[in-house]
């Protein structure tokens, strides 16, 4: 027993370990979080354009119409939705809901699917498809 414990890896090699689905959803929680953090200046600037004056409101429309901005916003939309859904999953697990392995796996799958589906629905709206 002691021998097994002693042979445990002391760190996780991200290249060698294979992430379970919940781990994959979890690392995306980090990725989406850091992405939202790094893009905060852009989001606050867009908020400023939307509220400063009627002229800046028009500028906002022009800025958001730019393909690169649209692409970034599409990414941020996914990041927000994934972070939101994964956050709810974490809160539920905190109160002991869905702790069992099968349930936890299913909820991780649901988070990935729901956030991607909502990104598709709202993203098409952003891109002006309807």
């Amino acid at each position: 027993m002691t021998e097994i414990i002693k042979r445990r890896p002391k760190y996780l090699n991200l290249v060698e370990i294979k992430l379970p689905l919940a781990g994959f959803a979890s690392i995306l929680h980090r990725v989406s979080g850091i992405g939202l953090f790094l893009m905060l200046p852009l989001l606050i600037w867009l908020l400023q354009l939307s509220l400063a004056s009627a002229e800046s409101f028009e500028t906002l429309s022009a800025v958001v119409a730019h393909p690169l901005v649209k692409l970034i916003l599409l990414g941020l939309l996914w990041a927000f939705l994934h972070h939101f859904c994964m956050g709810i999953r974490i809160l539920l697990i905190d109160v002991q809901i869905g702790v069992e392995k099968e349930q936890a796996r299913a909820s991780a799958k649901a988070v990935l699917a729901v956030s991607l589906a909502l990104t598709a629905v709202l993203g098409l709206k952003l891109l002006g498809a309807y």
Binding site: L40, P41, I44, L47, Q48, L51, A52
Partner: peptide, 12 residues
């Protein structure tokens, strides 16, 4: 960021 964003909504 907190100051900047607050100022945007507070001066309305």
């Amino acid at each position: 960021y907190a100051g900047w964003a607050t100022q945007i909504i507070w001066r309305l």
